[in-house]
Protein backbone atom coordinates (compact mmCIF):
# COMPACT_ATOMS: atom_id res chain seq x y z
CA UNK A 1 0.00 0.00 0.00
CA UNK A 2 1.25 3.46 -0.85
CA UNK A 3 -0.68 5.45 1.75
CA UNK A 4 -0.43 5.21 5.52
CA UNK A 5 -2.71 2.22 5.98
CA UNK A 6 -1.47 -0.16 8.59
CA UNK A 7 -1.83 -3.93 8.81
CA UNK A 8 -0.10 -5.65 11.68
CA UNK A 9 1.33 -8.53 9.67
CA UNK A 10 2.57 -6.38 6.76
CA UNK A 11 5.45 -3.93 6.59
CA UNK A 12 4.57 -0.59 8.05
CA UNK A 13 4.39 2.28 5.51
CA UNK A 14 7.31 4.67 5.89
CA UNK A 15 5.43 7.80 6.92
CA UNK A 16 3.43 5.86 9.48
CA UNK A 17 6.58 4.28 10.80
CA UNK A 18 8.04 7.73 11.50
CA UNK A 19 4.90 8.78 13.35
CA UNK A 20 4.69 5.60 15.41
CA UNK A 21 8.39 5.76 16.27
CA UNK A 22 7.91 9.32 17.52
CA UNK A 23 4.92 8.30 19.64
CA UNK A 24 6.79 5.33 21.12
CA UNK A 25 9.84 7.47 21.95
CA UNK A 26 7.61 10.11 23.57
CA UNK A 27 5.83 7.40 25.59
CA UNK A 28 9.09 5.81 26.77
CA UNK A 29 10.65 9.17 27.69
CA UNK A 30 7.42 10.23 29.38
CA UNK A 31 7.33 7.03 31.42
CA UNK A 32 10.99 7.52 32.37
CA UNK A 33 10.21 11.07 33.49
CA UNK A 34 7.30 9.81 35.59
CA UNK A 35 9.58 7.21 37.23
CA UNK A 36 12.27 9.81 37.96
CA UNK A 37 9.91 12.42 39.36
CA UNK A 38 7.99 9.85 41.41
CA UNK A 39 11.08 8.31 42.93
CA UNK A 40 12.93 11.54 43.74
CA UNK A 41 9.93 13.15 45.41
CA UNK A 42 9.59 10.42 48.03
CA UNK A 43 9.92 11.86 51.54
CA UNK A 44 12.76 10.51 53.68
CA UNK A 45 11.39 7.71 55.85
CA UNK A 46 13.57 8.51 58.87
CA UNK A 47 16.83 6.98 60.02
CA UNK A 48 15.55 3.83 61.66
CA UNK A 49 17.53 0.62 61.23
CA UNK A 50 16.95 -3.07 61.85
CA UNK A 51 20.45 -4.48 61.65
CA UNK A 52 20.06 -8.10 60.64
CA UNK A 53 23.78 -8.57 60.08
CA UNK A 54 24.84 -8.84 63.68
CA UNK A 55 23.16 -9.70 66.97
CA UNK A 56 23.99 -7.77 70.10
CA UNK A 57 24.03 -9.26 73.57
CA UNK A 58 22.36 -7.43 76.44
CA UNK A 59 22.23 -8.58 80.06
CA UNK A 60 19.60 -7.34 82.47
CA UNK A 61 16.38 -8.17 84.24
CA UNK A 62 13.33 -9.58 82.46
CA UNK A 63 9.91 -8.11 83.08
CA UNK A 64 6.60 -8.96 81.44
CA UNK A 65 4.66 -5.99 82.82
CA UNK A 66 3.53 -3.85 81.15
CA UNK A 67 5.20 -5.62 78.23
CA UNK A 68 8.09 -8.04 77.71
CA UNK A 69 11.17 -5.93 78.38
CA UNK A 70 14.75 -6.22 79.46
CA UNK A 71 15.91 -3.60 81.98
CA UNK A 72 19.60 -2.78 82.02
CA UNK A 73 21.42 -0.45 84.42
CA UNK A 74 22.07 2.92 82.81
CA UNK A 75 25.36 4.70 82.63
CA UNK A 76 26.31 6.51 85.84
CA UNK A 77 23.81 9.25 86.49
CA UNK A 78 21.49 8.03 83.70
CA UNK A 79 18.21 6.16 84.21
CA UNK A 80 18.09 2.39 83.57
CA UNK A 81 17.68 1.47 79.91
CA UNK A 82 14.72 -0.57 78.74
CA UNK A 83 14.63 -2.77 75.66
CA UNK A 84 11.31 -3.96 74.26
CA UNK A 85 11.50 -7.63 73.29
CA UNK A 86 9.80 -8.79 70.10
CA UNK A 87 9.95 -11.75 67.75
CA UNK A 88 11.17 -11.77 64.18
CA UNK A 89 7.54 -11.62 62.94
CA UNK A 90 4.58 -9.46 63.89
CA UNK A 91 4.36 -10.97 67.38
CA UNK A 92 5.40 -9.41 70.66
CA UNK A 93 7.70 -10.77 73.36
CA UNK A 94 4.86 -12.60 75.11
CA UNK A 95 5.04 -15.08 72.25
CA UNK A 96 8.64 -15.89 73.14
CA UNK A 97 7.72 -17.87 76.24
CA UNK A 98 10.41 -16.09 78.26
CA UNK A 99 11.62 -17.70 81.53
CA UNK A 100 10.04 -16.43 84.73
CA UNK A 101 13.08 -15.58 86.78
CA UNK A 102 14.39 -12.78 88.97
CA UNK A 103 17.97 -13.67 88.03
CA UNK A 104 19.94 -11.78 85.46
CA UNK A 105 19.18 -12.81 81.88
CA UNK A 106 21.32 -12.40 78.77
CA UNK A 107 19.52 -11.89 75.49
CA UNK A 108 21.09 -11.85 72.06
CA UNK A 109 19.03 -10.22 69.36
CA UNK A 110 19.03 -7.98 66.35
CA UNK A 111 18.79 -4.35 67.46
CA UNK A 112 16.20 -1.92 66.13
CA UNK A 113 17.34 1.66 66.57
CA UNK A 114 16.28 5.07 65.34
CA UNK A 115 18.29 8.25 65.51
CA UNK A 116 18.54 9.93 68.89
CA UNK A 117 16.26 7.33 70.46
CA UNK A 118 19.01 4.73 70.05
CA UNK A 119 18.25 1.04 70.33
CA UNK A 120 14.67 0.63 71.53
CA UNK A 121 13.91 -2.99 70.62
CA UNK A 122 15.61 -6.34 70.41
CA UNK A 123 14.29 -8.97 68.03
CA UNK A 124 14.79 -12.46 69.42
CA UNK A 125 15.11 -15.16 66.80
CA UNK A 126 14.96 -18.27 68.99
CA UNK A 127 14.16 -18.26 72.72
CA UNK A 128 16.20 -21.48 73.20
CA UNK A 129 19.40 -20.14 71.68
CA UNK A 130 19.17 -16.44 72.36
CA UNK A 131 17.88 -16.25 75.93
CA UNK A 132 20.18 -17.42 78.76
CA UNK A 133 19.48 -17.24 82.48
CA UNK A 134 22.87 -16.42 84.02
CA UNK A 135 22.04 -17.59 87.51
CA UNK A 136 23.53 -14.43 88.92
CA UNK A 137 21.43 -12.18 91.15
CA UNK A 138 19.43 -9.25 89.85
CA UNK A 139 21.60 -6.58 88.27
CA UNK A 140 18.95 -3.97 87.56
CA UNK A 141 15.90 -3.26 89.66
CA UNK A 142 12.58 -2.16 88.21
CA UNK A 143 12.95 1.57 87.80
CA UNK A 144 10.73 3.77 89.91
CA UNK A 145 8.06 5.59 87.86
CA UNK A 146 8.22 9.38 87.95
CA UNK A 147 4.82 11.03 87.40
CA UNK A 148 4.86 13.90 84.90
CA UNK A 149 1.22 15.03 85.14
CA UNK A 150 -1.66 14.69 82.70
CA UNK A 151 -1.46 15.86 79.13
CA UNK A 152 -3.48 15.92 75.92
CA UNK A 153 -1.29 15.01 72.98
CA UNK A 154 -1.77 14.89 69.21
CA UNK A 155 0.03 12.18 67.30
CA UNK A 156 -0.11 8.68 65.88
CA UNK A 157 -0.25 5.24 67.47
CA UNK A 158 2.47 3.10 65.89
CA UNK A 159 3.99 -0.29 66.43
CA UNK A 160 7.53 0.47 67.57
CA UNK A 161 9.09 -2.47 65.74
CA UNK A 162 8.20 -1.09 62.33
CA UNK A 163 8.40 2.58 63.28
CA UNK A 164 11.90 2.37 64.77
CA UNK A 165 13.38 0.53 61.83
CA UNK A 166 11.82 -2.72 60.60
CA UNK A 167 9.76 -0.98 57.91
CA UNK A 168 10.68 2.19 56.21
CA UNK A 169 8.37 3.98 56.44
CA UNK A 170 6.57 2.27 59.36
CA UNK A 171 3.84 4.82 59.94
CA UNK A 172 0.84 6.39 58.25
CA UNK A 173 -2.12 5.08 56.28
CA UNK A 174 -0.26 2.73 53.94
CA UNK A 175 1.34 1.05 56.93
CA UNK A 176 -1.86 0.99 58.99
CA UNK A 177 -2.74 -2.67 58.45
CA UNK A 178 0.79 -3.80 59.26
CA UNK A 179 0.91 -1.68 62.43
CA UNK A 180 -2.50 -3.00 63.49
CA UNK A 181 -1.37 -6.60 62.95
CA UNK A 182 1.82 -5.99 64.93
CA UNK A 183 -0.02 -4.49 67.89
CA UNK A 184 -2.69 -7.20 67.68
CA UNK A 185 0.16 -9.71 67.82
CA UNK A 186 1.42 -8.27 71.10
CA UNK A 187 4.02 -5.72 70.02
CA UNK A 188 3.53 -2.88 72.53
CA UNK A 189 1.60 0.11 71.12
CA UNK A 190 3.59 3.30 71.10
CA UNK A 191 2.47 6.88 70.63
CA UNK A 192 4.55 9.20 68.48
CA UNK A 193 4.14 12.90 69.09
CA UNK A 194 6.37 15.94 69.49
CA UNK A 195 7.47 17.58 72.70
CA UNK A 196 7.21 21.29 73.45
CA UNK A 197 10.46 21.92 71.55
CA UNK A 198 9.24 20.16 68.43
CA UNK A 199 11.48 17.13 68.93
CA UNK A 200 9.90 13.67 68.52
CA UNK A 201 8.56 12.15 71.73
CA UNK A 202 7.62 8.50 72.17
CA UNK A 203 5.22 7.12 74.76
CA UNK A 204 4.64 3.50 75.55
CA UNK A 205 0.85 3.17 75.90
CA UNK A 206 -0.45 1.45 79.05
CA UNK A 207 -3.83 1.33 80.76
CA UNK A 208 -4.88 3.68 83.54
CA UNK A 209 -3.42 1.33 86.17
CA UNK A 210 -0.12 1.16 84.32
CA UNK A 211 -0.63 -2.40 82.99
CA UNK A 212 -0.02 -3.46 79.43
CA UNK A 213 -2.98 -3.18 77.05
CA UNK A 214 -4.35 -6.63 76.36
CA UNK A 215 -7.66 -8.28 75.45
CA UNK A 216 -10.60 -5.91 75.29
CA UNK A 217 -8.53 -2.82 76.05
CA UNK A 218 -6.20 -3.65 73.18
CA UNK A 219 -9.12 -4.27 70.81
CA UNK A 220 -10.60 -0.89 71.71
CA UNK A 221 -7.32 0.70 70.60
CA UNK A 222 -6.81 -1.21 67.33
CA UNK A 223 -9.17 0.82 65.06
CA UNK A 224 -7.21 3.98 65.92
CA UNK A 225 -3.77 2.66 65.02
CA UNK A 226 -2.00 4.85 62.43
CA UNK A 227 -4.83 7.39 62.35
CA UNK A 228 -4.41 11.00 63.47
CA UNK A 229 -5.54 10.85 67.10
CA UNK A 230 -5.59 12.88 70.33
CA UNK A 231 -4.84 11.12 73.59
CA UNK A 232 -5.33 12.34 77.14
CA UNK A 233 -3.62 10.60 80.02
CA UNK A 234 -1.12 10.55 82.83
CA UNK A 235 2.45 10.85 81.69
CA UNK A 236 5.23 9.13 83.54
CA UNK A 237 8.87 8.34 83.05
CA UNK A 238 10.01 4.79 83.79
CA UNK A 239 13.69 4.26 83.21
CA UNK A 240 14.59 5.81 79.88
CA UNK A 241 11.08 5.38 78.41
CA UNK A 242 8.04 7.62 78.67
CA UNK A 243 4.67 6.03 79.27
CA UNK A 244 1.18 7.38 78.81
CA UNK A 245 -1.64 5.89 80.90
CA UNK A 246 -4.78 5.99 78.78
CA UNK A 247 -8.32 4.69 78.64
CA UNK A 248 -8.42 3.20 75.10
CA UNK A 249 -12.20 3.80 74.97
CA UNK A 250 -11.54 7.54 75.18
CA UNK A 251 -9.27 7.91 72.15
CA UNK A 252 -10.34 10.85 69.98
CA UNK A 253 -9.85 11.17 66.26
CA UNK A 254 -8.66 14.46 64.91
Amino acid sequence: MRDAFYVGYLRMPKRLRAFVTTVVVVLLLGAGAVALVATTQQPAPGDGTWDLSEKIKVTGTLTTEPYAMLTVPGKPGAPPRQFLLVTMGKVGGAGLDLPATDDAVSITGYPIARGAAGTVLLTVESPEDDVAVSGKPVIARDPVPVALGTATLDGEIVDPKCYFGAMKPGQGKVHKACATLCIQGGIPPMFVTTDADGAPAYYLLVDEQGHGLRGEALHALLPFVADPVRLTGQRERVGDLLRLRIDPRMIERR
Binding site: A147, L148, G149, T150, A151, T152, L153, D154, G155, E156, V158, Q171, V192, T193, T194, D195, A196, G198, A199, P200, A201, P228, R254
Partner: peptide, 17 residues
Protein backbone atom coordinates in the same frame (compact mmCIF):
# COMPACT_ATOMS: atom_id res chain seq x y z
CA UNK B 1 -5.89 20.28 56.94
CA UNK B 2 -4.69 19.43 60.41
CA UNK B 3 -1.50 17.92 61.69
CA UNK B 4 0.44 14.72 61.37
CA UNK B 5 2.45 12.63 63.73
CA UNK B 6 5.60 13.51 61.90
CA UNK B 7 8.20 15.05 64.12
CA UNK B 8 7.99 18.78 64.20
CA UNK B 9 4.51 18.97 62.78
CA UNK B 10 2.42 18.33 65.86
CA UNK B 11 1.36 20.98 68.34
CA UNK B 12 1.18 19.50 71.79
CA UNK B 13 -1.24 20.67 74.43
CA UNK B 14 0.43 20.33 77.77
CA UNK B 15 -1.41 20.32 81.06
CA UNK B 16 0.34 21.20 84.27
CA UNK B 17 1.78 18.30 86.25
Amino acid sequence: SATTARPGATPTQEASP
